[in-house]
């Protein structure tokens, strides 16, 4: 088990990352809260020793993604909420980003992780493959397809990745 200081630091450091991943997958604040609690409790109780900050970050991302998946699986997609409701979340971004976020959120679930990890966190395809437990080539094609879909949704080639 980790000390209180460690957990405090981890929450400070990674809360935004976890929040964004929740944002991608979940549709309401209560679920997000659940995930936060699960993820950081797991972090507090785990005895994994991290080699580096990067390792720690990757561990947390993986735990979060898995937790989101488990949650969605348990709900069995019975809870579908329209996109407007998502926008009413407390963390709803300013309107100029709304279009982009909407585009990302409208992607199928398996693309969203990849898009976020690649474009925001800056992970390379092999790294994403390791984190998500996917084949590298699968990640490449997921990235390629999501890029196409985003381009189609947002229009124009100004979004050249």
């Amino acid at each position: 088990m980790r000390s209180e200081e460690e957990v405090n630091r981890a929450v400070e450091q990674y809360a935004d990352t976890v929040r964004r991943l929740c944002m991608i997958h979940l549709k309401n604040y209560a679920d997000t809260e659940d995930i936060f609690q699960n993820v950081f409790l797991k972090y507090a109780l785990s005895s994994v020793s991290f080699e580096s900050q990067e390792h720690e970050r990757a561990w947390l991302i993986r735990v979060t993604v898995n937790a989101c998946r488990d949650l969605l699986k348990s709900f069995f997609r019975s809870r579908t909420v329209s996109i407007d409701e998502i926008m009413e979340q407390p963390a709803a971004p300013p309107s100029e980003n709304r279009e982009v976020l909407e585009a990302v959120l409208s992607l199928p679930a398996k693309y969203k992780d990849v898009v976020y990890l690649h474009y925001y966190e800056g992970y390379t395809a092999p790294e994403i493959g390791r984190i998500l437990g996917k084949n590298v080539n699968t990640v490449y094609s997921l990235l390629k397809r999501s890029r196409e879909m985003l381009r189609e949704k947002l229009g124009g080639d100004e979004y050249e990745g």
Binding site: V11, A15, D16, R19, P93, N97, V104, L150, R151, Y159
Partner: peptide, 19 residues
């Protein structure tokens, strides 16, 4: 696209209350 995505995601922050 990268910048825009980055900006979008940047605007999402964990609430203090949540933390």
């Amino acid at each position: 696209m990268k910048d825009k995505l980055k900006k979008t995601f940047d605007s999402i922050r964990a609430e203090e209350e949540l933390k």
